[in-house]
Design a protein around this nucleic acid. Structure first.
Lengths: 184, 184
DNA sequence: CACGCTATTTTTAGTAA
DNA sequence: TTTACTAAAAATAGCGT
């Protein structure tokens, strides 16, 4: 099976097979209640997408758990391209993946508390005033607030560093995790 | 076509059809040289992915252009589910998309400078020492450093707020863009 | 690009391992 | 979760509109 050379046939084939692929995906969704996200770029550079319940939610879920891992770093390019369905080495990778998932979940928590800190903090007004204009007791309050933030940030960056160091040694194109995270 | 009830058959069917889907995708890639990203969550919550040249690059490309739009918000659920292949309303959406793309590019910049600030700042040692142990001039330096960070953070949260407000008014499940962005 | 048509190839359900 | 087998169902190429 090779790349089609005739531009006309290429377009027609792409169009047909795209519909076929999306139909298969939709059948899989209805039949199994699976969550899906598909992104497709035509040879002309046009984007098509399909998702259930929607592209973004599924992608987000994926990015939230597997994200920092450079999944498929050299993945389906060239050498392993025809081997998408093989089942070798998956088990070997599960340890790494689980580590990463835990890593990332911890990371996510920091991220959430961090965001809350940014947005909804009761000391928000302190952060929005020029420091020059603050009274001394306000300054002290801000200092405490900043120190809290500092801790969260340090933890967060440490988490990121650890996660990225871990992930840099992994190279996969298909990942199955074993437990957790019920659908919905 | 309905959701399979028997758990055993559901698993088998999912496994088979997942392979079918990935095979179709890989054929589409070789035949047409298309870029692809597929993410699948099994009914058990297990993640599978396929991508060419890799999941991340294709996703990134997609997210960079269409991202914060809640693509397929009500997408393939119920009403529009069988209409995955329709091609209506694309032009109407392009304006929104362009707005969002600009929004996101600005947003991305803030995010990057913010991350740099966190991680690679030359004052990093200040952030890693207990505040109690800092000399006065170091404290002053840290204060400046924090004030800079504060500005970035405020900008960042403002950007996020604006972007999410914009995106909440859009609702599509398939997007074709008309110009730009040649493949590769 | 989308659609109809049809011979041919491919995929799938159902079953069992 | 995967594989093997087979009859039945579906997708596709190649053609034309």
């Amino acid at each position: 099976m090779e790349k089609i050379k005739s531009k006309d046939y290429l377009q027609v084939t792409f169009s047909k097979r795209r519909n076929g692929l999306f139909k298969k995906a939709s059948e899989l969704c209805t039949l199994c209640g699976a969550e899906t996200a598909i992104v497709l770029y035509s040879p002309a550079g046009k984007a098509f997408s399909f998702g259930h319940p929607c592209v973004e939610s599924t992608m987000d879920k994926f990015l939230a758990t597997a994200s920092l891992i450079e999944i498929g770093k050299s993945s389906l390019g060239v050498h392993s391209f025809p081997d998408y369905h093989r089942n070798i080495g998956i088990n070997k990778l599960n340890r790494h993946i689980n580590e990463l998932v835990n890593q990332l979940e911890a990371e996510k928590k920091y991220g959430e508390s961090f965001t809350q800190m940014e947005m909804a903090n009761k000391d928000q007004f302190l952060w929005n005033k020029p420091i020059k204009n603050l009274e001394f007791h306000e300054l002290e309050q801000l200092r405490v607030s900043m120190e809290e933030l500092k801790i969260k940030m340090v933890n967060r960056t440490e988490g990121l560093k650890r996660a990225s160091m871990l992930s840099s040694s992994i190279d996969i194109n298909q990942v199955g995790r074993t437990e957790d995270e019920g659908v919905q």
